[in-house]
Design a protein around this nucleic acid. Sequence first.
DNA 1: GCCAACGTTGGC
DNA 2: GCCAACGTTGGC
Length: 150
Amino acid sequence: MSKWLVKTEPGDYSIDDLKRDSTTLWVGVRNYQARNYLLEMKVGDEVLFYHSNAEPSGVVGVCKVAEKPEPDKTQFDQKSIYFDEKATKEKPRWFCPKLRFVKKFNKLIPLSELRTEKGLQKMGVLQKGSRLSVLPVTEAEFKIVLRLAQ
DNA sequence: GCCAACGTTGGC
DNA sequence: GCCAACGTTGGC
């Protein structure tokens, strides 16, 4: 099973929102590389939940894949900010898995702390210029983050 | 297919 | 708010 990390701005959708909702469709990803990662997600995969553009930014909890990706309905909705005029129902461009809340860490693990961890130096989210909102995480990296959360 | 212009992301 | 990094668009 694979591990992942998803980014979200807490003002848009935070770990507390996911805790309240229990599950959510991860709509709105509009980057092909990120989409391809979403499509690789399998039910049961564990996902680090990351707050970006936050004070401070960092990993705040864990969720998991509850349902495999389905076409993201917002791409067909003209009123949605995620509307994509080039997408059709016959040939959807964008997909969203359903994510289920697992836990919120007692403390946020800030980027600065992740950066000082030896085992995390190659972690995707720490790489310079990394802007992908969906990223793979290795088993070892995932374990280290969980340890830091304790 | 190249590449300039433009838009977005996201740390700081 | 700044700006580096990267993605996308569209003229040619």
